[in-house]
Design a protein around this nucleic acid. Sequence first.
DNA 1: GTCGCGATTTGAACATCGTTCACTGATCCC
DNA 2: GGGATCAGTGAACGATGTTCAAATCGCGAC
Lengths: 208, 208
Amino acid sequence: MARRSKHGPDALKGMIVDAAEAILAADGLDGLTARALAERVACSPGTLYNVFANLDEVVLNVEARLLDRLSARIADARPEARPRDAVLQMAEIYLDFSHEFPRLWSILLEHALPAGQATPDWHRARLSELLGAVEARLVPMFAPGQQTEAALAARVLWAGVHGICSLSVADKLTNVTAQSARVLIRDLVETYLRGIEARRPPLLPGSA
Amino acid sequence: MARRSKHGPDALKGMIVDAAEAILAADGLDGLTARALAERVACSPGTLYNVFANLDEVVLNVEARLLDRLSARIADARPEARPRDAVLQMAEIYLDFSHEFPRLWSILLEHALPAGQATPDWHRARLSELLGAVEARLVPMFAPGQQTEAALAARVLWAGVHGICSLSVADKLTNVTAQSARVLIRDLVETYLRGIEARRPPLLPGSA
DNA sequence: GTCGCGATTTGAACATCGTTCACTGATCCC
DNA sequence: GGGATCAGTGAACGATGTTCAAATCGCGAC
């Protein structure tokens, strides 16, 4: 029953990740069963373990591909000239993306590896790549000697946007629909950046 | 083998939630096994199901108690006079809390009920209670006719703080330790609120 | 053309999971 | 004292992730 591989080993890997993504998008983490996945790939459960160490590794691969897709979307966007518009554009891409793949997106954020297991480096690298993209767009707003401040602002904005998307996808922000999450994001970016600009003028004697 | 209840039925409920919290804090969601929980409570697995519909309900009760503890901590805090300080105080309580119970906190955010199941109302109510506390502290910053803006700002700040805590606890913010998450939070609150104040002066002709 | 090596896939088997339910026996009411 | 009641039980069920000895066939050697 076993050809010498009817499709290159990498192709099999791809088919498994494809099938896993479809299952995750449709039924969430609980739906991703070794047997269900194997059936969709038309192989036996054991075969999965010839290609991946365990199901978590399959999930990690789905997540990685999702992050790549987001990165690509950001890279494809026509770059906006003004930092404010550039950051806003990124934030909205992020928001749209999280609502386009809500199930997969939640899994990306929620999926915690068992006890000792740490997130693999190649996974963390993709996250900080995104962070770097925000940072790059913010640098023009800061003086040459203020890279530290730019890095800080990038992290604050990224985390803030992420928080809004996260709560919005999970439907945990009272009275905030997917529609109005966009309003929240605009407000966060615009108000926060306005706050940065307002910091430059000389301090008034009144404030500490 | 079964007395007519050796401890009131509510007491049993409490003991189960206690034990569940201990297990969750120590071993995470994966560690919470019906059998492990039963052993800790010194009863049989079946008994758990006389008191709770399933393990998810137990987890929800742990989460609820956690939210209550956070609410109490916020309520106990000596109220700060200036809105800025009050909001900052809340945000730092939130941050400290999430790092004091990192495992439980992650579970609270990550724990997704199976497919159709929606978060129970009593659970959502506790979340929006917290949101209301932020809102109450922000109201003084806005003119009487601007309650909508205050509500918006409350949601943005809450989501932003939540995002920082969430990424920080999950260790997903590159180069951001638990220590420096406090810096991010301060920056978010201060800069965002400065941005709100900066909005009040009449618009300059230059800006769209 | 055929043969056999070895890479590849298989699926039965294992331990463990959440959950159920027929049963037990201590307790209360009469 | 003697049912009736019901909290508590734990064996049993189906499904889970994972393993591994065995089965299978592609392919190079002759």
